[in-house]
Deep mutational scan, measured.
Amino acid sequence: DETGKFLVLALYDYQEKSPREVTAKKGDILTLLNSTNKDWWKVEVNGRQGFVPAAYVKFL
C-alpha cells in the first residue's frame, strides 16, 4: 500500500559506499521513507532500504 508515501526519481546512478546506503540507477523510481536530512534521504528500492544523496533524486 503506497498511501501516504512519496515517490522520487533517481536523476543519476548512485553506487552505495556503505551498508547504510543503497544503489540506485538513473531513472529508478524510489519510495521516499524520510527526507528530514537535507543531504541524505532514506529510500526503498528493490526491497532494500537505505540512504541516497538528496541531490541525486527529485520528487515525481
Rank of each mutant, 00 (worst) to 15 (best):
D1K: 12
D1V: 14
D1S: 14
D1N: 14
D1T: 14
D1L: 14
E2R: 14
E2S: 14
E2H: 14
T3L: 12
T3D: 11
T3E: 12
T3N: 12
G4T: 12
G4D: 09
G4V: 13
G4A: 11
G4M: 13
K5G: 10
K5D: 07
K5Q: 11
K5P: 13
K5T: 11
F6E: 07
F6M: 13
L7H: 09
L7N: 04
V8H: 04
V8Q: 01
V8M: 07
V8F: 08
L9C: 14
L9P: 00
L9I: 15
A10D: 00
A10C: 15
A10S: 04
A10M: 15
L11H: 01
L11I: 12
L11V: 08
L11G: 01
L11E: 02
Y12A: 10
Y12V: 09
Y12P: 00
Y12W: 12
Y12R: 12
Y12N: 06
D13N: 07
D13S: 08
D13G: 06
D13T: 07
D13K: 05
D13C: 12
D13I: 11
Y14E: 01
Y14I: 07
Y14Q: 01
Y14R: 00
Y14C: 12
Y14W: 10
Q15R: 09
Q15E: 14
Q15A: 12
Q15I: 15
Q15D: 14
Q15S: 11
Q15G: 06
E16S: 15
E16L: 06
K17A: 10
K17S: 10
K17H: 08
K17E: 06
K17Y: 04
S18I: 04
S18H: 11
S18E: 07
S18L: 07
S18M: 06
P19E: 11
P19Q: 09
P19N: 10
P19S: 12
P19D: 12
R20M: 13
R20E: 12
R20D: 11
R20V: 10
R20H: 13
E21I: 06
E21F: 08
E21R: 03
E21Y: 08
V22D: 03
V22K: 02
V22H: 02
V22G: 03
T23R: 04
T23K: 02
T23N: 04
T23H: 04
T23D: 03
T23V: 03
T23W: 06
T23I: 04
T23Q: 03
A24C: 15
A24V: 15
A24Q: 08
K25N: 09
K25H: 10
K25Y: 10
K25P: 02
K25F: 10
K25S: 08
K26D: 02
G27I: 04
G27K: 04
G27R: 03
D28S: 07
D28F: 08
D28G: 04
I29Q: 03
I29Y: 05
I29S: 02
L30E: 01
L30H: 01
L30F: 06
L30W: 04
T31E: 07
T31L: 14
L32F: 05
L32K: 00
L32Y: 03
L32H: 01
L32P: 01
L33V: 09
L33N: 00
L33Y: 02
L33R: 01
N34A: 08
N34P: 03
N34V: 09
N34L: 10
N34D: 15
S35N: 12
S35R: 12
S35H: 10
S35L: 07
T36N: 12
T36C: 15
N37K: 04
K38F: 07
K38L: 08
K38N: 10
K38A: 11
D39S: 10
D39I: 14
D39F: 15
D39E: 11
W40E: 01
W40R: 01
W41N: 00
W41S: 00
W41A: 02
W41T: 01
W41K: 00
W41F: 09
K42I: 13
K42A: 08
K42G: 03
K42V: 13
K42C: 15
V43F: 03
E44L: 08
V45K: 07
V45P: 01
V45M: 06
V45N: 08
N46R: 11
N46L: 09
N46H: 09
N46S: 07
G47H: 03
G47M: 04
R48Q: 07
R48I: 08
R48L: 07
R48G: 04
R48N: 05
Q49W: 08
Q49R: 11
G50C: 08
G50V: 05
G50I: 07
F51S: 01
F51Q: 01
F51R: 01
P53D: 02
P53K: 07
P53Q: 05
A54W: 09
A55G: 10
A55S: 14
A55D: 08
A55M: 10
A55C: 14
Y56K: 04
V57I: 09
V57M: 12
V57F: 12
K58T: 13
K58V: 14
K58Y: 10
K58P: 01
K58S: 11
K58I: 14
K58A: 14
F59W: 09
F59K: 10
F59V: 13
L60C: 12
L60R: 02
L60G: 02
L60Q: 06
L60S: 04
